[in-house]
């Protein structure tokens, strides 16, 4: 019995991830023929789950707290917007956006080892804010309106020219993105990062290059954010300063927490839950901040391990009861 529990624990993340990705794919396919508004919403969900997954990865596996992932997400989206008039291919646009985000992450990441954790988090927040100010102020970024009309065509051979086609194609891209996140977590790379996270001294004694791994982890998370930002620009066909706002950095952290910080599925569940929550709340009321804030506070005080933690506790309780019943007999 205990071996079953152990196995469930070990593979719970993977199983949960597969189930959720399949559900998301079904959701996307079911909405691909719906109204443009719903297509845009679901397309956004399909992008955000990867973005939030990368933020969760950064916190949980790499062990770096950043309040400025909007730098890479929004920065990539703006790069796509700025490059679009000169570049015809959507695939190339995506690669340019990801390249810009990766370079930005490689520069910002240099601070990880120089400044204390909180300072780093505030630094990333401040950098994001200054990009926000820049994007609103400058003419070449389109000011408050932003940039639009990128003429998305085919991405790696898949049609993304309309929101409906985009959503259908995202079935492939989101699945691949999740596979990437899964690999980053369970590959040798992820295992070493987790070892460093739990005890950097012990990991160093075992021969892991702590700095190299953490830096690489940060850059990879930034690059994945860049993928998502570029996809966002291609989906909406526009990019406005909102994408650089602090909420772009803050919301994924909230989503991660709602879902549960402790596992790979947490951020994904939290993301879907949060986006639907805000969608419903903003349809009913103008006061979405109040409601989202209240729900968040209740989650933290009542269920600090998030939705996944609640499920985990329930499963453990059932299994323990069965085990005890077994022993009595």
């Amino acid at each position: 019995m205990s071996t079953f529990t152990e196995r469930l624990r070990r593979h719970g993340g993977t199983i949960g991830l597969i189930v959720i990705v399949l559900l998301l794919d079904v959701l996307a396919l079911s909405q691909a023929g719906g109204s443009v508004e719903r297509q845009l919403f679901v397309g956004n969900v399909m992008i955000q789950v990867i973005f939030v997954g990368s933020v969760g990865y950064l916190y949980r596996i790499v062990g770096v707290a950043s309040f400025g992932q909007a730098i890479f997400y929004g920065g990539a989206a703006y790069t796509v917007g700025l490059a679009a008039p000169h570049v015809g291919s959507s695939t190339l646009l995506l690669l340019i956006g990801v390249g810009a985000a990766t370079i930005a992450a490689a520069v910002v990441g240099l601070f990880i080892f120089r400044v204390p954790g909180l300072s780093f988090a505030i630094l990333t927040l401040a950098l994001g804010e200054s990009l926000f100010v820049l994007a609103r102020r400058e003419r070449w970024t389109g000011g408050d309106t932003g940039l639009f009309g990128f003429g998305a065509g085919r991405l790696f051979g898949l049609d993304i020219s309309t929101p409906g086609a985009f959503v259908a194609s995202m079935v492939v891209f989101t699945s691949l993105g999740m596979l990437l996140l899964w690999w980053l977590e369970y590959s040798r790379f992820g295992v070493v990062l987790r070892a460093i996270r739990s005890s950097d001294r012990r990991a160093a004694a075992l021969g892991a290059g702590i700095r190299t791994y953490r830096y690489a982890g940060f850059v990879v998370a930034g690059a994945v954010s860049g993928v998502c930002g570029s996809l966002y620009a291609l989906l909406w066909n526009l990019v406005s300063p909102d994408i650089l706002q602090w909420s772009t950095s803050g919301d994924p952290i909230i989503m991660t927490l709602i879902g549960g910080m402790g596992s790979i599925v947490g951020p994904v569940i939290g993301c879907v839950a949060f986006l639907y929550l805000v969608d419903i709340a903003s349809a009913i009321t103008d006061q979405w901040e109040l409601w989202v804030g209240t729900i968040l506070l209740v989650v933290i005080l009542a269920a600090p391990r998030g939705v996944v933690g609640l499920v985990d506790d329930a499963v453990s309780r059932v299994l323990r009861r069965k085990e005890e019943a077994h022993r009595v007999r």
């Binding site: 803050g250 952290i253 909230i254 927490l257 006061q287 979405w288 901040e289 109040l290 409601w291 989202v292 804030g293 209240t294 968040l296 506070l297 933290i300 005080l301």
Partner: peptide
């Protein structure tokens, strides 16, 4: 995050 939630609530209020 709890204090961030309070910030959101203050904004909402």
């Amino acid at each position: 995050l709890a204090t961030y939630a309070l910030l959101l609530m203050a904004q909402g209020a």
